[in-house]
Amino acid sequence: RKEMTAACTPRRRIINLTSVLSLQEEINEQGHEVLREMLHNHSFVGCVNPQWALAQHQTKLYLLNTTKLSEELFYQILIYDFANFGVLRLSEPAPLFDLAMLALDSPESGWTEEDGPKEGLAEYIVEFLKKKAEMLADYFSLEIDEEGNLIGLPLLIDNYVPPLEGLPIFILRLATEVNWDEEKECFESLSKECAMFYSIRKQYISEESTLSGQQSEVPGSIPNSWKWTVEHIVYKALRSHILPPKHFTEDGNILQLANLPDLYKVFERC
Rank of each mutant, 00 (worst) to 15 (best):
D251E: 12
D158C: 14
K118S: 07
L102I: 11
P117F: 07
I14N: 10
A175Q: 05
E134D: 14
A103H: 04
M101N: 08
Y264H: 15
N259D: 14
N259G: 07
S189I: 05
S189V: 05
N49L: 03
I222W: 14
N65K: 02
A53H: 00
K227E: 05
R13K: 06
L255F: 06
L121R: 14
N259A: 10
M135Y: 04
H247Y: 10
Q51F: 02
G110R: 12
V234F: 04
K60H: 08
E143C: 05
I144E: 00
E185A: 11
R269D: 13
P95A: 15
F248N: 01
E25M: 06
K265H: 13
V126P: 03
K184Y: 10
E147W: 08
N259S: 09
G213N: 13
T229D: 10
L61S: 04
I79Y: 00
L211C: 11
K227L: 04
H232I: 01
Q58G: 09
T5F: 04
Y139F: 08
L39K: 00
Y62K: 00
I171Y: 00
F128K: 08
I125W: 10
E92N: 07
G220P: 13
C270K: 15
Q56Y: 10
L164T: 06
E29Y: 10
L167S: 02
P163Q: 08
E25D: 14
L238E: 00
V45P: 00
L260M: 12
I27L: 05
R12T: 15
G46A: 10
Q58S: 14
R269M: 05
T67F: 03
E217A: 12
I77F: 02
H57G: 05
K131V: 14
I14Q: 07
Y62N: 02
H42R: 02
I79H: 01
E188W: 09
F97A: 12
E25N: 07
R13H: 08
E217F: 09
E231H: 04
T66K: 01
F197M: 07
P95Y: 11
R173P: 01
Q24A: 11
W52N: 02
F170Y: 04
V234Q: 01
W52V: 12
I151E: 09
S43G: 12
L104W: 05
Y62C: 04
T229R: 15
L69S: 02
T5H: 05
E25I: 05
E231F: 01
R89F: 14
T18W: 12
L54C: 15
S191M: 08
M38N: 01
I157N: 02
N179D: 11
H40L: 10
E134M: 11
D115H: 08
H241V: 05
C47E: 02
L172C: 07
Q30F: 11
E37M: 07
E183F: 00
Q24Y: 05
E37W: 06
G152W: 02
R269C: 06
W228M: 08
L63G: 04
H57V: 06
N224Q: 11
P261S: 10
G148K: 05
L104K: 00
E92W: 07
H32V: 13
R89K: 10
D181A: 15
T18F: 12
V218G: 14
D138E: 10
M196L: 13
K130C: 11
K130I: 09
L102H: 12
W111G: 04
G110Y: 12
K2V: 13
L23E: 00
G252I: 04
V87K: 09
F140R: 01
T59Y: 07
E143G: 06
M38A: 09
K132T: 01
I200N: 03
A100T: 12
S106N: 13
D262F: 12
I222V: 13
T249I: 11
R11T: 10
T9V: 14
I233T: 12
P244G: 01
F140E: 00
G120L: 09
K227P: 05
E127Y: 08
L155H: 10
G220M: 10
K60W: 15
C8W: 08
Y264Q: 15
G166K: 02
L136Q: 02
V161S: 15
K60C: 13
E143I: 11
P245T: 03
E250Y: 07
K246I: 09
D251P: 04
C270H: 14
L69C: 03
E37H: 13
V230K: 01
Y160Q: 01
E113A: 09
V266A: 12
A94L: 08
I27P: 00
C8F: 07
K236H: 07
G116S: 07
R36H: 07
H32G: 13
F140L: 05
P244W: 01
L129Y: 06
Y75I: 02
E147S: 07
A122P: 01
T18Q: 07
P117L: 07
S212G: 12
V218S: 15
R269K: 08
N253I: 15
N259F: 04
V34D: 11
R89G: 12
Q30S: 15
F97N: 12
F82Y: 03
R13V: 07
S43E: 08
E71M: 06
Y139W: 04
N41D: 14
I205V: 15
I144H: 00
G213T: 12
K265Y: 06
P223R: 12
L121W: 11
L61P: 04
W52A: 03
W228H: 11
E250T: 13
E182K: 11
H57A: 15
P163R: 12
R13A: 05
P261A: 12
E250H: 09
G110W: 10
Q214D: 09
R11A: 08
N41E: 15
A100V: 12
L243I: 08
N41H: 12
N179C: 12
E29H: 12
L96E: 00
I169A: 12
C194G: 04
D105V: 10
G46Y: 08
A53T: 04
C194N: 00
P107Y: 09
L260W: 06
L39N: 02
F187G: 03
M38C: 07
N253W: 15
T229H: 05
M101V: 10
F248I: 05
W228C: 05
D98L: 06
E92M: 08
P95M: 11
P117Y: 08
A7Q: 05
N259L: 10
D138F: 05
Q51Y: 03
A7Y: 06
L39C: 04
D105E: 14
L190Q: 01
N224K: 14
R201A: 01
A122L: 02
P93M: 06
P244S: 01
S141A: 07
Y235A: 00
P107N: 12
K131T: 09
H241G: 05
S225V: 10
P93Y: 05
K60D: 09
K184T: 07
E72P: 00
H247L: 07
I151V: 13
S109F: 11
P261R: 13
K236L: 03
F128L: 12
L96M: 07
L136Y: 01
R13M: 05
S22T: 13
Q215D: 15
K2G: 11
Q76F: 00
K130V: 10
S109C: 11
I222M: 13
S225G: 15
L17Q: 05
W226R: 01
K236W: 04
S189A: 11
N259Y: 06
P162K: 02
W226C: 03
E185V: 08
H42V: 15
Y160C: 00
N16C: 08
Q51T: 10
G31Q: 13
A100D: 02
V178E: 02
P223E: 15
H232V: 03
L63Q: 02
T112A: 09
K60L: 11
L35A: 13
Q56K: 15
L129C: 04
W111D: 03
G116I: 06
L211M: 13
L64D: 00
R173S: 04
E119S: 11
E113R: 07
E188L: 10
Y235C: 03
E71T: 06
L172H: 13
D158L: 10
G116Q: 08
E143L: 10
V48M: 08
M4I: 11
L136C: 04
V45Y: 06
G31W: 04
W228Y: 12
P219V: 13
H241E: 06
Y160A: 00
N259Q: 13
L156K: 01
R239I: 01
I171G: 00
V126M: 10
L211N: 14
V218A: 12
I169Y: 12
W52R: 02
E108D: 14
E26A: 13
G116W: 07
S141G: 14
W228I: 06
G31I: 04
K192W: 09
E114Q: 12
M101I: 12
F267Y: 14
L17V: 05
L190F: 14
K236C: 06
Y198S: 02
F44E: 02
L260T: 15
H241W: 09
R201D: 03
A94S: 14
L238C: 08
E37C: 11
L156H: 00
E217Q: 08
W226P: 02
L150A: 02
C194Q: 03
L142E: 02
V161T: 14
P223I: 12
V48A: 08
I171H: 00
A122S: 14
H32S: 12
K192V: 06
P244R: 02
P244A: 03
L104D: 00
Y204D: 03
